[in-house]
């Protein structure tokens, strides 16, 4: 497959998404919990980034905020050049629709729609024409061409997640956010989904940010961010499962910055 004409837009300079001084506090007063503490991060184009950290480290919050699903307490979040913190709900929704792809842990698909309809859903909602050539390429990559007419309930969990991943890519977003995409899958199905995400980075130049707690999943990424207590405490290039696991062990008990 030729990758040149079928790649995500990368003509813009700079990172696909970035956060500056990002702080997110839940609650008020004595019960206030700081989920993110002045985090600054850049997600470079064409790179696959994994965000790791123990429960409560703020990794999911970071992803939700960067994806425009949650508001910030202070700081700025950009997708391309657009500052998400200045957008109203409708504009934010349109930005999510047009520039962001999502893969959630579960319940990614509309049960009444076929696999194909689910894949083209964001474009259909926007009323935009579907880039058929691109969608075909994505479908071929997930390898579910013969199941396109099926409803989600007729697909296995792994197949459903691959359809969800295909949907995330179908609208050619600037960035794809995946929240524990393999959390509900067995290792073989998980590997299929991760391979697909990896290929979409390699072959289409897609930018992907994935939250996971699974070292094996993280090893598919180019780059790993480690979060603890709302701060980025470490990064790792070209991760392997063993190295990631070792690093994660380091959080047990002594991960706290003190």
């Amino acid at each position: 497959m030729s990758t040149a004409p079928l790649s995500v837009p990368s003509d813009e300079a700079g990172p696909a998404a970035r956060a500056v001084g990002l702080t997110k506090v839940y609650g008020e007063g004595d019960t206030a919990v700081t989920a993110l503490d002045a985090v600054s991060v850049e997600f470079d184009r064409g790179r696959f980034t994994a965000i790791m950290g123990p429960s409560g480290s703020g990794k999911s919050t970071l992803m939700h905020v960067c994806a425009g699903l949650d508001s910030v307490t202070s700081g700025k979040v950009y997708i391309g050049d657009v500052d998400l913190t200045t957008l109203k709900d409708n504009d934010l929704t349109r930005l999510r629709r047009d520039a962001v792809g999502f893969v959630f842990q579960a319940f990614n698909l509309v049960p009444t729609l076929s696999a194909l309809e689910n894949i083209t859903l964001p474009m259909d909602i926007a009323g935009r024409p579907v880039d058929q050539e691109w969608v075909d390429a994505v479908i071929d990559t997930i390898g579910l061409r013969d199941r396109l007419r099926n409803r989600p309930s007729q697909l296995s969990g792994g197949q459903q997640q691959r359809v969800a991943a295909a949907r995330a890519l179908a609208s050619r977003p600037q960035i794809v956010f995946a929240d524990e995409p393999t959390g509900n899958l067995d290792s073989r199905a998980g590997a299929e989904v991760l391979s697909f995400l990896r290929r979409s980075v390699d072959e289409f130049g897609q930018t992907i940010v994935m939250v996971t707690h699974d070292p094996t999943a993280a090893s598919y990424a180019d780059h790993v961010l480690f979060l603890a207590d709302g701060l980025i405490v470490d990064t790792m290039e070209d991760p392997t499962p063993d190295r990631v696991l070792d690093r994660m062990k380091g959080f047990d008990g002594k991960g706290r910055r003190s």
Partner: peptide, 16 residues
């Protein structure tokens, strides 16, 4: 609820 949340996440407006 989850389905609606997902639709919203992938770009359905409140109006829609």
């Amino acid at each position: 609820t989850r389905e609606i949340g997902m639709l919203r996440a992938v770009g359905a407006l409140r109006r829609q």
